[in-house]
Design a protein around this nucleic acid. Sequence first.
RNA 1: CGCGGGGUGGAGCAGCUGGAAGCUCGCGUGGCUCAUAACCACGAGGUCCUGGGUUCGAGUCCCAGCCCCGCAA
Length: 323
Amino acid sequence: MPSTPIKLIYFGTSSFAVPALRALAAQRDLFEVLLVVSQPDRPVGRQAVITPPPVAAAAKELGLPLYQPAKLRDGEAEKRLKPLSPDVFVVAAYGRILPPDLLAIPKRGALNLHGSILPRHRGASPLQSAILQGDGETGITLMLMDAELDHGPILDTLRVPLVGNETFPQLESRLGEAAAEQIAARLPEYIAGRLPPQEQDHAGASFTGLIEKNHGGIVWSRQSASEIERMIRAYEPWPGVFAVWNRNGRELRLRILRAAVAESTALAPGQVGLGEDGCPTVGTAEGNLRLLELQIEGKNAQAGDAFARGYREFIGSRLGDGR
RNA sequence: CGCGGGGUGGAGCAGCUGGAAGCUCGCGUGGCUCAUAACCACGAGGUCCUGGGUUCGAGUCCCAGCCCCGCAA
């Protein structure tokens, strides 16, 4: 047990990184959060209200000093962080690559909480990637950062089983909590020298990039029903999964919020039929998809059977690909 | 003033070239049936978002406002 608290600077942005910050801030005898670094406030919602990211909001609530630099490489950040002489950085879903001059600041290095079992799913969207790939388990890797992305030696891996019905927000919440437990338990061990770093198996690495809007567009002739079903869970709430319905000459954006892979029933890709439960069923490249909850642009989300009753011409129509 | 769609019985929608409020489902009652979420008959249930205006007459046209949602950011 160290006589003085571990001095750290916390880097984080999304809600995945909130529980870990709270856990560290809660134990003042063990940890001293010198500063929280988060991305700048951004416009959010229809009215584009400038809103702080979740970690920044949490930092304010906890009364911690907060720093939201627009740039990391202009020297300003280094000037701000170096004088604090931290023992470590703790980085979790910060959303930006830390340049080497910053990584050199903490005496005991920069620790990253990554939302996958490394070396699998290195990169920007590990949670979504685990859902998309249908992984049977995922987890949190605590690692030492080096110059390459999610490439440094591993300190600890925490495994979390997946059932196959997780949505991104659910997984984010679960893994966020797991990361909080992990960092609170392991950081003191690491400082005490009881957590030997282990080189990653670089040959087994896989990568996952930033998610873009168009990833949520369904291509009926190329994607299978189970693939689409996983997309729906991975891309909630953004960018969502969508197709196009041509209704009386108007192209409407159709968002699919919940779906299930259907038993049989052969339908052409994009062709809409009616399932036994009253929900619409669509053909894909492989298997059919039952639409359990959907939303047309300009309307609220609604149950699949209600949708089929209301828009009677939907059944029998042919859906276009999402763009 | 970013662009656009929408607010109609419990749910989802139609009606929008102004003239007695409708469809699918749900709900209630009765019937059929060994039985049923199935089928048949009957029935209850609506300030057509709010406030003005035009008109002999407005859910339907005009003006203002409130709320919901898609896009964009």
